[in-house]
Amino acid sequence: MRWNTMTLEFESRPCNESFARVSAAAFLAQLNPTVEEVADVKTAISEAVTNAMIHGYRQEKGKIQMKCVLDLEEKVFQVTVKDTGVGIENVEKAMEPMFTTCPELERSGMGFSFMEAFMDELEVRSHPGWGTEVVMKRKIGVHPEM
């Protein structure tokens, strides 16, 4: 069996962010990653989930879905974080480094840049009123070990 998948659905509340991250990390453990690989993936997931909470739902109630897929042969981890919040008008612009619509929240506008930096692939699908879906992939075990 080449694939293993899981789907986690949770409420948009700050207290759920760390639990979602740990769940993904525990699932990813099946690919026997290094500490750094897990830290990278956790950072990326953190940014995506925080975006869903702060921007997608504007800190109001809502459900966030996180789907993880393991390619056990190729050792690739894929995660999709999805909200059905306000959505993004201009995705390309939103993904530019330093771009933020909430400067007052002391957000750095670097969330998408971090996701891109820590993962191998990043894809964002979003429509106003429909919500936002962030798909990220990361190959595990490629970096030559010390």
């Binding site: 990390a25 453990a29 026997n32 990653p33 290094t34 500490v35 750094e36 897990v38 970096h143 070990e145 010390m146």
Partner: peptide, 9 residues
């Protein structure tokens, strides 16, 4: 002795 595995940390 390779890069630190998660299990170790």
């Amino acid at each position: 002795n390779n890069a630190i595995r998660v299990s170790r940390s």
